[in-house]
Nucleic acid binder design. Structure first.
Lengths: 338, 338
DNA sequence: TTGAAAGCGCTAACAA
DNA sequence: TTGTTAGCGCTTTCAA
């Protein structure tokens, strides 16, 4: 760990002032080509990289965006982050990801620390509620955009997908195939997305003149085992459904397993439709019909809003609701002829 | 975005010097309780959070560790990062994650930037080769630890799992169940882990006096569709195997689907064993028998090595190879009676 | 127990 | 086209 090469080192090595080096490094105009080359050579010779902290302190900018996520495991989240990364990179900004591991203290500290000297803007990717961050975010001195949380109490620009219409699309698709008895595997109660999807399911049925039967709704907790158990329960019904709408892809996978496990076939005996369209959805067998949330786009859109805010644009509150769409693959078909 | 509250603001608000505030914030001794309370009150009143950049610049430390990953999607990676996060947090350090999106320029820049003023140490979680980072890492002025890459040319402390013995365990398990014809779904050729697993498979067979039949080895690329296709090919063999060993869990999932798709049952007709033990492995149906890589532990161990390095310990090169172990679940059983 | 001075490495604003 | 002067907000060192 030899001690770091600084601007001053480059300056004296190249026989110029620090300022000149700074201008070269930052690609500012007003430097003769000859000097520029000499400085670049010195940088090359000594192996110089600017110190990010010093830069941030002096310049007031970090050229970095922060992304706060509960954890980095779920494909859902990683897709959004990928979108954010692409956009930030295109704009010449770096992206730093911070996980909270769902720990409250961790959450508060993270936000405070990031927004004080580490990042120029913050993207909160939080399927759950924002309550726990409210205070920390109020004090944030950088722009904040919230992605994937329709928490209506939030005083920040927001990007979310249209969960309600997505659910309606799913139900319509199954109805059009001829299904009359459709089970629903619900998500997590505390997320607004989950409630919206349930509402879409319910109203989709009612609009079609079909009854809403609470017995056909089972909790799946957005997990694969949850979906497995829920589907089992639905199959055990005296009059089981001919199609299952799962509130997310993961629980749809579980449902498909439960169905196959009973010796039934998807979609011949039972149709399954999911929600999210995570990359896995196209890779299972049969490939999952699902409602696509534009996850990557949510990341890019949120980041673009953040960039606007950084450049002084946009009102403080804006809600961008991106459309969801039906992606028909192989897991849905007509109900079996009775 | 009102302008930030600084140490000086707190100092004047509390009627003390900046130094006193700094000591209170950093929990240093030598401050009377009365003063301490007054300062804390001022901090509370004004809502102060220290500026990370200023701190890093003045103190020479950031109290932050960096983690570089190719992308954050794979469960494999997120498990390692989770381990790192836990350990860093316990040590009172923060963790910042940076993705390279497999982009070479991005990779080089990231490392340089992080190690110059943003983090005190770097954990590289890279299943692929480190070649592309070699130069940037040479110039790193902070300790570096590499996780999940057995790239032997790397002059850094290293944490990896024992892929070879894991593969031996998998083969032994199948042999003990009575299988004689075992297919192998290979991983990605460019990773040393993949080669080690193949070697374990091969030598496991040879040691048992069984022939190594290249026709029983199919590429799976570590992906679910890859595993699906590979298993199909194996099933199409004139004399198909009675068990399949997949180089990772994802391709094992694909294999299970292919088998069920043929109307065969796992494990009654065919056994499947994976590698990694990602959280999903226990959630599919039947639950996957697999070789557990201690992913979280790899993250914690790597981070602990980094912490040691930070405190001036350890030699520059150390290789920690953590043991793998067999996790028997429901996807393996005796071969069908002929 | 408290505080003053100096400076970390850089950039903004201005001057030459 | 280049350089000088300040100072970002904090911690270190040393003195009171």
């Amino acid at each position: 760990m030899r001690s770091a090469v600084t601007l001053a080192d480059i300056a004296s090595h190249a026989g110029v002032s620090k300022m000149t080096v700074s201008k070269v490094v930052n690609k500012q105009p007003g430097i003769s080509e000859a000097t520029r080359q000499r400085v670049l050579q010195a940088i090359e010779d000594l192996g110089y990289t600017a110190n990010a902290s010093a830069r941030a302190l002096a310049g007031g900018r970090t050229n970095t965006l922060g992304v706060v996520v509960p954890s980095i495991g779920p494909q859902y989240i990683s897709e959004v982050v990928r979108g954010a990364d692409l956009t930030a990179y295109d704009a010449g900004l770096d992206l730093l990801i911070s996980t909270t591991q769902e720990d409250t203290i961790h959450e508060r500290q993270n936000v405070g620390r990031l927004t004080r000297g580490l990042v120029d803007g913050l993207l909160m990717v939080l399927p759950r509620s924002l309550d726990r961050y409210a205070e920390a975010l109020q004090q944030a001195r950088v722009p904040v955009v919230v992605v994937a949380s329709a928490d209506s109490a939030v005083p920040f620009p927001l990007v979310d997908a249209d969960h309600y219409h997505g659910a309606r699309l799913a139900v319509s698709h199954l109805l059009e195939l001829g299904h009359q008895r459709i089970g629903f595997i619900a998500g997590r109660r505390e997320t607004s997305a989950s409630l919206e999807r349930l509402r879409g399911y319910r109203e989709g049925l009612l609009t079609a003149g079909l009854p809403f039967d609470p017995g056909l709704v089972r909790p799946g907790e957005y997990t694969q085992p949850g979906g497995f158990a829920a589907a089992r329960a639905l199959l055990d019904l005296p009059q089981p459904p001919t199609a299952i709408f799962a509130a997310n892809d993961l629980s749809a996978f579980g449902a498909m397993e439960a169905i196959k496990d009973r010796g039934l076939r998807v979609p011949d005996d039972l149709s399954v439709i999911g929600f999210d369209d995570i990359p896995h959805a196209g890779q299972v067998h049969p490939a999952l019909t699902t409602i696509r949330q534009p996850l990557v786009e949510m990341g890019t859109a949120g980041t673009r809003m953040l960039l606007n805010l950084l450049h002084g644009g946009l009102p403080v509150t804006e809600r961008l609701v991106l459309p969801t769409e039906l992606v028909v693959r192989a897991s849905t078909g007509p109900p079996p002829a009775t």
